[in-house]
Amino acid sequence: MRSFIADTLALVVFFTIVGALNERFVAGMGWDEVATARMIGAPLMVLTARPYGLWRDWFVARTAPPLPQFVADAVALLVFQVPIYAAIVAMGGASGAAILRGCLGFAVLMMLVGRPYGIWLDFIRARFGLGAGGMRPMSLQ
């Protein structure tokens, strides 16, 4: 349960901010569309945060090395989040062109924020007494 809460908190906080900025300033959505997309996105983020955390842990464990950590984090985020983001923006009422621009912008953004999000996720997990892999460290006590 602790892993679920930590991963969910990390994802919701980070991507509510990042998603809203992308929708407004890259996709060109109005603030009303941004608000709708974020309201749709919040429950989806709750549903996908822990699966993403598990996916990221699995992907990074198998690809870094040989991939540098920042590349593994970026690719893990890109592959998992862009399809979800496309659905959120579409349900928010964006036009086809806005969806395409938003997804392209979000894909670039995922490549840029993959490692910062990985660091943020590990930071939040540590606040919950979890290891970087999202599981509580073993103790002899």
Rank of each mutant, 00 (worst) to 15 (best):
L21Q: 09
I17S: 08
F25P: 00
I84W: 09
P51N: 05
V79Q: 04
V75F: 11
L109W: 04
M110N: 13
R62C: 01
V13P: 08
I5Y: 13
V34T: 04
T16D: 11
A74D: 01
N22R: 14
W31K: 09
L44P: 00
F106Y: 14
A126M: 02
V26N: 03
S95K: 05
G53H: 10
F4A: 13
V71W: 13
V46D: 02
G19N: 15
P83H: 10
W120I: 04
L121N: 11
P68N: 14
Y117S: 01
M29D: 05
R115H: 15
Q141A: 09
G134T: 11
W58M: 07
F15Q: 03
R136E: 15
V18E: 05
M138Y: 10
G19Q: 14
S139L: 12
D57E: 15
R50F: 12
R24F: 06
V13H: 10
G118C: 00
I84Y: 09
G118S: 01
I99P: 00
Y52A: 05
S3H: 08
R50L: 12
N22V: 15
A35P: 01
F123E: 00
L112W: 00
R101G: 03
D73A: 10
V113T: 14
I84V: 14
W55D: 01
Q69E: 13
G96L: 12
V108G: 15
R24E: 07
V46P: 00
M29W: 02
R101M: 10
A132P: 02
R62D: 03
R2K: 12
M138A: 14
D73H: 15
L21C: 07
Q81V: 09
L77H: 13
T16A: 14
V26F: 09
A132Y: 02
V79F: 10
A10V: 10
I84E: 07
L109V: 06
D73L: 07
G30K: 08
M29S: 09
F15W: 15
M45A: 14
V60N: 07
L109E: 11
V26Q: 03
R136C: 05
L44V: 09
G19W: 12
R125K: 03
A94I: 06
F14M: 11
V79D: 04
R125N: 06
A49N: 03
D32R: 15
W55G: 01
L100A: 14
R2A: 11
L47D: 01
P66N: 08
F25K: 06
F70G: 00
Y85T: 13
V113P: 00
Q141N: 12
V13W: 12
I40F: 06
M138G: 06
R2C: 00
F14Q: 08
D32I: 11
I17M: 12
F15V: 03
A76L: 06
W120D: 02
T8K: 03
I5E: 10
R115C: 06
A35H: 08
A126H: 06
R127H: 01
